[in-house]
Design a protein around this nucleic acid. Structure first.
Length: 545
RNA sequence: GGCCCGUUGGUCAAGAGGUUAAGACAUCACCCUUUCACGGUGGUAUCGUGGGUUCGAUUCCCGCACGGGUCACCA
């Protein structure tokens, strides 16, 4: 068969010499050991923790080695395209300090552009044409229905499904049949003529998993779809070669198609990048665990964490602890060192699926937030409130001086121990709300109403804004004694039956009346911030007939 | 079902042919304390299973079980 004539018929026109692409996209001039990695999302705009997980690994490996991280958009499937998706991805990752050196909507070195696969159609076709000329690729006229029927038949006979060997009907079409189909205007795809035998296995070094065995591919996979756009597999081989990617860190779900990629690189005569297949982030789902899914787990979208007001650094630290098993230890030893100093390696990445643990994230968040200065905390909360907060919450930030006093108190700044009361910005808003508004509701009092009213009245009688903390608390103790509560906890513990309760119960009455909550930071300090007038008003309101 | 990957406490995990099998989160108890949040002390809890190799295996080898992934003109 005249493959050149066939190639010309299938993909007419003049394409550049293949070798010219090698000089058009020359090897990168980078120091030895520098890794070129990439993120290659499809433009659905949806980005979740799993994407961030992989993104951090790629970013760290590239930048730690003095290499390049670039963003390529895999838009070969039009159905997946969503407007503004690329900007959304860039923005979402930027929130976590993931910066690209070059790529779609980023710019940077234009040598390896364009970064949208749809704009690279010519390169793909040039190489597909070449494969046809070599007899390594052929047109296939099978319809979707025929392929479905084939798959069903194979499944029914317990055969491996797919387009291979004797099932590859168009593989050995005669010249005459091919041209008859073409003349009839039948749509076609281009398939790889696979030379592999899946019974033959090869050892393969995976940067994360170590030695693995990979069977040869025997599937005549589609490399060019009927719309003239390549499939992922083919675009991957071309792009990662010409964008000079050195290391592909990607999800484990790609391991199954590694045989295809290996054959493709070989057929094209390209040197392969190294690969590392990282485990997926799992979620407990009833009895079993499964990979995080975009459909079922909206709460795992990055947007969710932004809305809740998680501190981005905390999320990043949690991801790093999952990503590199020795990170946590390093971080404990170097709490103040920049995260960039950690020696991130692919080899230290986990081989097995990791269950996402919200408790752990929350713990890290709490700790990270507790390290912030009052002004950094204010800036973080404000940014959150302006985007997600209620108008009332936004108003908190109008009075900078008061806010600063509130945060100083709530975070225990200046004290011996930092407070750790909240995990997210949204929790923080709830935590400080009583400083800015009268409590909308009061938690339930444990002390009965008559006694309660007595305590509140007595407090109003003795309360002076100028009292220091000791004097203030001495007052509370006196009131406790007056109403039959133990003024000293020790006394109460020694003989609980001798008292109506303890000074703790009295303090609780005042606390709830002032803040609406049974649990707060130091009440004297809170009252100092609120001011005498406001405190009196709130307490008076709680004296109920 | 075929193929591939994986399996140390509830979770993330360190670890080496001989260890009291680290640490963190969670959990429980106690201490501190006017509440809470911290902080402190201590506790419960782990090598999937069967067979080898070996003086000795959680560690090395094989089988099995279990979990996961994948088998598109999606990526």
């Amino acid at each position: 068969m005249d493959y050149h004539a066939l190639a010309e018929r299938l993909l007419p026109g003049n394409y550049p010499e293949l070798s010219s692409y090698e000089s058009l996209y020359p090897p990168r001039n980078l120091p030895k050991g520098a890794e070129v990695t990439r993120l290659a999302p499809s433009p659905t705009g949806f980005i979740h923790l799993g994407n961030l997980f992989a993104a951090i690994a790629n970013e760290r490996i590239a930048h730690r080695s003095g290499g390049i991280l670039y963003l390529r958009i895999e838009d070969t499937d039009l159905k997946r395209k969503v407007d503004g998706a690329v900007e959304a991805v860039i923005k979402a990752l930027d929130y976590f300090d993931i910066r690209f050196d070059e790529g779609a909507e980023i710019g940077g070195d234009e040598t390896y552009a364009p970064w949208y696969q749809r704009q690279r159609a010519e390169i793909y076709r040039a190489f597909v044409k070449h494969l046809i000329e070599e007899g390594r690729a052929y047109p296939c006229f099978c319809t979707a229905e025929e392929l479905d029927a084939l798959r069903e038949e194979q499944t029914a006979h317990k055969e491996v499904p797919g387009y291979y060997g004797k099932y590859a009907r168009c593989r050995d079409l005669s010249e005459e049949e091919i041209y008859r189909n073409l003349d009839a205007g039948k749509p076609f795809v281009i398939r790889l003529r696979s030379m592999g035998d899946p019974e033959v296995k090869h050892k393969f070094h995976d940067e994360i998993k170590g030695e693995i065995t990979v069977p040869e591919n025997d599937q005549d996979v589609v490399i060019l779809k009927s719309d003239g756009i390549p499939t992922y597999h083919f675009a991957h081989a071309i792009d990662d070669h010409f964008m000079r990617t050195t290391l592909v860190i990607r999800g484990e779900e790609w391991l199954a198609s590694l045989p295809i990629h290996i054959e493709l690189f070989a057929a094209l005569g390209f040197e392969r990048p190294r690969y590392g297949h990282n485990c997926s982030l799992m979620k407990q789902d009833g009895e079993t665990r499964r990979k995080l899914s975009k459909r079922k787990d909206p709460e795992l979208s990055l947007e969710y964490y932004r809305k809740e007001g998680y501190y981005p650094r905390a999320v990043k630290i949690y991801m790093l602890t999952l990503l590199n098993s020795n990170f946590e230890e390093w971080y404990m030893k170097n709490p103040d060192a920049p995260l960039e100093e950690f020696k991130f390696t692919a080899a230290k990445m986990s081989k097995s699926g990791t269950l996402f643990d919200l408790d752990k994230l929350n713990d890290i968040s709490k700790n990270e937030l507790s390290k912030l200065s009052a002004s950094d905390m204010a800036a973080f909360l404000k940014a959150w409130a302006m985007e997600f907060g209620t108008p009332a919450q936004q108003k908190y930030f109008g009075d900078g001086e008061k806010l600063s006093r509130v945060l100083t108190l709530c975070m225990g700044i200046g004290g011996k121990k930092r407070r750790k009361d909240f995990t997210t910005a949204s929790q923080a808003m709830k935590f400080i709300e009583y400083f800015f508004e009268r409590p909308a509701a009061h938690e339930e009092y444990r002390v009965e109403k008559d006694v309660r009213n007595g305590i509140l009245r007595a407090f109003l009688q003795h309360y002076r804004d100028t009292d220091d903390a000791q004097t203030w608390f001495a007052n509370v103790k006196a009131i406790a004694a007056e109403f039959g509560f133990a003024a000293e906890m020790k006394d109460y513990k020694a003989a609980p039956e001798a008292y109506r309760g303890s000074v703790a119960d009295v303090a609780e009455v005042l606390r709830i009346a002032t803040t609406g909550k049974a649990n707060t930071p130091d009440l004297w300090s809170i009252q100092q911030i609120l001011g005498e007038e406001e405190v009196r008003a709130r307490i008076s309101e709680e004296i109920k007939p």
